[in-house]
Design a protein around this nucleic acid. Structure first.
Lengths: 221, 221
DNA sequence: TTAATATTCAATTAATTGCTTGAATAATAG
DNA sequence: CTATTATTCAAGCAATTAATTGAATATTAA
């Protein structure tokens, strides 16, 4: 074969390894979760409703296409996204959200009839968050909060929200966020808060988005 | 099924449409070419060494995942990338280049023994281009030059290079570029120029990269 | 050592995909 | 109206892939 043709075939074949890795919905979900912080296989299997063996296989596909790295920690194997991968994922999500109309429809159908999920003036909300005019709750599991959270947010994992309700003044508005637009933790948090008489709204952005917008992110306690 | 689970499955399923579209090496090559400017099916088939029918099918996959748009112009159907798609492609290419070591190897093997292709000080070269200290040749087909080119470059399609040689002073260094690191037009141009006694080097960056670096791009004549 | 736990491996099945071939459609020119 | 050209459609084959199952491996704790 013509060496020029051969060269191109080989190069695009390598590029397609990345594409193949992100051509499976389950692997995309795994990547999305991993962008919140490293995880064990078992943990990822629970989050995604996959069997352990299947999760492991998907993770190995991701590893072979160099999108994730793996480290053995005692009895567990911990996976984490490779550098640049979360940016790439965001870029892919952006194309999908802008180009595929079905995504908006699915979101609307899911949020239909839920309180506090109505479209709001995003920029005004972000302004109020920056000015600390609202109480911000990070309702993800505590490890994820530790790995990185919106500056000024309180760690209130969804599971503990009900027990911690008393701490929040009823007259101050509450903004809950979690992993991003397709994570439902904050949806449930806002539902609960509104039922209990708080004025709560949901912030769709996750920490990754927040960082990508150039806003302040903290980590640790 | 649990509505939360169902929501996630539906969303990531939509995301994966983008991933599936870029999971085929041939579709990636098509996208890469389209990012240089719109093309007909026949033209794309020639560039990629695919049959017309097969090209058409790939283009329809790209269309169904909303990565390209189509317009009928007389007897021809013209395809072009949808907004944001070229940025996404660059982001994917960047991950691939940084994470997949085989790409560098394939490139080195291909360029092995060719003159003027040795690794050079990229930034110094770009500086000299910006300062117009070298003659810059855009060796792509003229339509692509029209659609966008590095400011100050001359359109010298590879096919006409031999006939236009006389125009260039032998004492001024020549820099040739084409579509990007995986396009071989500039490789062939540099080989020819060096054989004819010119001092020519290759710029790996294409117009897209040039623009992405914030440098000056012109279009038209 | 043995038992328990987390992960990976290997084999199987059903479904999907890429490519080829030849026919069908649509726009234009004579 | 007919012929030509560009593109798409439809059917079929070979190859690849996702998920399941049960067994194998590796690390730790008893």
């Amino acid at each position: 074969m013509n060496p020029n043709r051969r060269f191109k075939d080989e190069i695009y074949d390598q590029f397609s390894r990345i594409g193949k890795a992100v051509s499976s919905p389950k692997r995309l979900e795994l990547l999305d979760i991993l962008c919140q912080g490293e995880r064990t296989v078992e943990n990822l299997a629970n989050e995604t409703a996959l069997t352990i063996a299947n999760t492991s296989q998907h993770l190995q596909v991701l590893k072979n296409s160099r999108l994730v790295e793996q480290e053995k920690k005692g009895l567990y194997v911990v996976y984490r996204p490779a550098p640049m991968v979360c940016q790439f994922f965001l870029s892919m999500r952006k194309v999908a959200e802008n180009r595929i109309a079905e995504i908006e429809q699915i979101k609307n159908r899911f949020l239909e009839g839920k309180k506090g999920m109505e479209p709001i003036d995003r920029n005004a909300l972000i302004e109020r968050i920056k000015n600390e005019e609202v109480t911000i709750l990070d309702v993800r599991p505590p490890e994820e909060f530790m790995a990185g959270h919106i500056s000024g947010a309180l760690s209130v994992p969804l599971k503990q929200l009900e027990f911690m309700l008393a701490r929040f003044p009823k007259n101050k508005e509450i903004v809950a966020y979690c992993r991003g637009p397709y994570c439902v933790l904050s949806v449930e948090a806002v539902e609960l808060l509104n039922k209990k008489g708080y004025h709560a709204v949901r912030l769709e952005e996750g920490v990754q988005d927040w960082r990508a917008m150039g806003l302040s992110v903290a980590s640790g306690e």
